[in-house]
């Protein structure tokens, strides 16, 4: 059996690669807190590639418009249908931003409307406990972007299980640091990343 590999999804229309550090910092946290068999580096996989189906989890982010191609739509739909987990994070953390508008439009078109994930959802207890739901990011607290602290994450849920997790909170910026830099912080900032991956693999 293959070790868990953090996959970043490549799509044709935008800056898919803007969260360059996210894979490493989440892998680092997974190694620090779990015994999960891990690949030491993330991979980038084209959404329209059939090899997307080799991964149980795919991370998508960006600032620019998200306009999937027909092949990307078809493949992403198959990925979710087969139990894959999509984590999409708005790197703009801007509720009226172009990424948010176009990404949610695409997800709605593919999977139906996004709904708020309740803050007592199993996602927030999948490994660490987050009593108040999704942890706020420093970008939210500093009033950047839309100057909002988003209360909920959004999701596409099927039978209570999240298939697609969508975040306006800009975890991509929050986790944009070299793993070695964590040692200067009191708490590991990507603990919630551990919850997302563990949830994706166990629920």
């Amino acid at each position: 059996m293959k070790p868990f590999t953090f996959a970043t999804g490549m799509y044709a229309s935008g800056d898919w690669e803007s969260g360059q550090m996210v894979a490493a910092i989440v892998i680092d946290s997974l190694a620090r807190f779990t015994t999960l068999d891990l690949a030491p580096a993330g991979v980038n996989v084209a959404l329209e590639s059939s090899e997307l189906l080799e991964f149980p989890f795919v991370y998508l982010t960006g600032h620019l418009p998200v306009r999937f191609t027909a092949g990307e739509r078809r493949n992403l739909s198959r990925f979710v249908e087969r139990g894959g987990f999509v984590f999409m994070d708005d790197h703009n953390h801007d509720v009226d931003g172009i990424f948010h508008k176009t990404a949610t439009e695409e997800l709605t078109h593919l999977f139906g409307p996004l709904r708020p994930v309740p803050n007592d959802h199993a996602l927030y207890r999948a490994f660490f406990t987050f009593e108040d739901g999704p942890p706020a990011t420093s970008h939210e607290l500093n009033g950047w972007g839309d100057n909002l602290v988003h209360e909920h994450l959004l999701g596409i849920m099927r039978d209570g299980r999240i298939d697609v997790l969508y975040s306006n909170k800009d975890y991509s910026s929050e986790w944009s640091m070299h793993p070695d830099s964590k040692r200067f912080l009191e708490k590991d900032p990507s603990r919630f990343g551990v919850n997302i991956v563990v949830y994706a693999l166990t629920r």
Binding site: I27, A41, E48, P179, D188
Partner: peptide
């Protein structure tokens, strides 16, 4: 398709070095 930019610095995590070194305790 032309994928925007595309160069992605490949960071390899030293898993053995960090394995289970986290101090935060999970609640599961």
């Amino acid at each position: 398709r032309l994928y925007l930019r595309g160069i992605f610095p490949k960071l390899v995590v030293d898993l053995d070095k960090v394995r289970l070194k986290g101090t935060d305790r999970p609640a599961v």
